[in-house]
Simulated scan of single mutants.
Amino acid sequence: MSGRAVATLGTALTTFLLVAVLVTELLSARIAFSALVGLPAGVVGGAVAGVATWLRLWRRAALRPVLLGCSAVGYALLAAAAVSYSVPPARPFVSAESAVGVAVVCGVAVLLIARRYPERIPE
Rank of each mutant, 00 (worst) to 15 (best):
A90Q: 11
A76Y: 00
V87C: 06
A90G: 11
F93C: 10
P88H: 02
P88R: 06
A81H: 09
S86I: 08
L63H: 03
P92A: 01
L67G: 04
L63R: 02
A62C: 07
V66G: 13
A79E: 05
L55K: 09
L77A: 05
G69N: 03
P88F: 01
F93I: 08
V66L: 15
P89N: 02
L63M: 12
A79H: 01
R60S: 09
V83M: 09
S86A: 12
S95K: 06
A82G: 12
R56W: 13
A76C: 06
L68I: 10
A76R: 00
R64L: 11
Y75A: 00
S71A: 15
S86D: 15
L67W: 02
V87E: 04
L78F: 08
C70W: 14
Y85L: 08
R64H: 12
A82Q: 09
R59W: 08
L63Y: 03
V94S: 05
R64G: 12
P89E: 02
V73R: 00
R56C: 09
P89M: 03
A96Y: 15
A90P: 15
R91M: 08
G74V: 03
C70Y: 10
A62K: 09
C70Q: 12
S71N: 10
Y85C: 05
S71M: 10
S98W: 08
F93H: 13
R59D: 15
L63S: 07
L55P: 02
V94C: 05
V87H: 04
P92F: 01
L67A: 06
A99V: 02
L77S: 03
L55W: 06
V87P: 06
A72M: 13
R56I: 14
A90L: 15
V73A: 01
S95P: 12
P65Q: 04
S84R: 07
S86R: 09
L57Q: 07
S84P: 06
V73I: 15
Y75Q: 01
E97N: 14
V66Y: 08
L67Y: 01
R60D: 14
A61L: 14
A82C: 09
L57C: 09
P88L: 01
A96W: 15
Y85H: 11
P88E: 01
L77I: 12
Y85V: 07
S86V: 08
L67T: 04
S95I: 08
P65W: 01
A81V: 08
G69M: 02
S98L: 15
S98F: 09
A76K: 00
P88T: 05
C70N: 10
P89T: 06
R56P: 04
P92K: 02
E97W: 07
L55C: 05
V83W: 03
R60T: 12
P65C: 06
R91E: 04
W58S: 06
F93N: 13
S95H: 07
A90S: 14
G74K: 00
C70A: 14
G69H: 01
S71R: 02
S95E: 10
P65A: 05
Y75E: 00
R64Q: 15
E97M: 11
Y85E: 14
W58V: 04
L55M: 07
L63N: 09
A82I: 11
V94Y: 02
A90F: 11
V83G: 04
L57G: 07
